[in-house]
């Protein structure tokens, strides 16, 4: 499923807020077609890492390559070209509140393509259905949706441009266990059928077991270890051990 060129290649990343160092000398590769779960304690900079990769936070130093292009070297047009190849799902969906769900999905379509209004509506309808929203959700406003539906709508917007890669920031946080499990299945199904690469920040051990091909643990200001669930279970760093062998972890594995 994966080939050798990483879609994201991070080397020596340093991020700071004032005097507070968030990442120091952080390296990470994300392979094409994989689901990478990023875990770490609160305040270890998981979301900061995601926001740095997509360009919302400027790193102090280090190199971030996406699709083989170094982000810092790109001009505005180059960035736009890269940005149209990824989608981002923020924690609460981050839908535009003055637009309906379908119109939210059409925002990137109208910005980046010259599709006709009819094709855009049809394409929005396809995405709404793909993420498992009912057909009558199309003309609803974000305030009329539940938290889980907002996340699905946010995912539909992230998928609008048929991106090669999606960034998910805690996709299952705030969902009930059934909703969370459904969302996991949805991500896995879409990842398979659309051939997506998924970069997922999560706290949800069930998600890690259910859908992640590899897991990256953020600790001590860097990526402590990357690997499959087996690697995690064998790792002897105290935090990693506690995380993957704690009572909640055992519950997730069913032991």
């Amino acid at each position: 499923m994966t080939d050798e060129t990483p879609v994201i290649r991070i080397r020596g990343l340093e991020t700071r807020f004032g005097a507070q160092v968030v990442h120091h000398n952080l390296d990470l590769d994300v392979m094409r077609g994989e689901v990478l779960g990023v875990v770490g304690g609160s305040g270890t900079g998981k979301s900061v890492l995601l926001r740095t990769i997509v360009g919302l936070i400027k790193p102090r130093s280090g190199k971030i390559e996406v699709f083989g292009q170094e982000m810092a070297q790109l001009d505005q047009m180059g960035r736009r070209a890269v940005e149209s190849r990824w989608g981002v799902l923020f924690q609460d969906g981050a839908l535009f509140s003055s637009l309906t769900v379908a119109q939210n999905i059409e925002v990137p379509l109208a910005e980046y393509t010259d599709l006709s209004a009819d094709t855009m509506d049809r394409l929005a309808a396809v995405k709404i259905s793909l993420v498992g929203l009912p057909a009558d959700a199309g003309d609803k406003y974000p305030s009329e949706l539940s938290g889980g539906m907002r996340k699905r709508a946010g995912l539909a917007r992230a998928l609008a441009m048929d991106p090669e890669m999606v960034f998910l920031d805690e996709p299952t946080a705030g969902l009930d266990p059934i909703g969370a499990a459904d969302f996991d299945k949805l991500i896995r199904r879409l990842q398979k059928s659309l051939g997506l690469t998924v970069f997922m920040v999560t706290h949800d051990l069930d998600s890690l077991w259910a859908i992640c091909d590899r897991i990256a643990v953020l600790a001590e200001k860097r990526v402590l270890v990357v690997g499959t669930m087996d690697t995690m279970l064998r790792h002897d760093h105290p935090w990693v051990h506690e995380y993957f062998h704690g009572p909640r972890a055992r519950a997730a594995t069913g032991n």
């Binding site: 309906t100 379908a102 509506d121 929005a124 396809v126 259905s129 057909a135 199309g138 003309d139």
Partner: peptide, 14 residues
Amino acid sequence: LVSTNDRPTVCHPP
């Protein structure tokens, strides 16, 4: 995939 998901959907407020 697209065929199964292409269904009539109201996209805009009336």
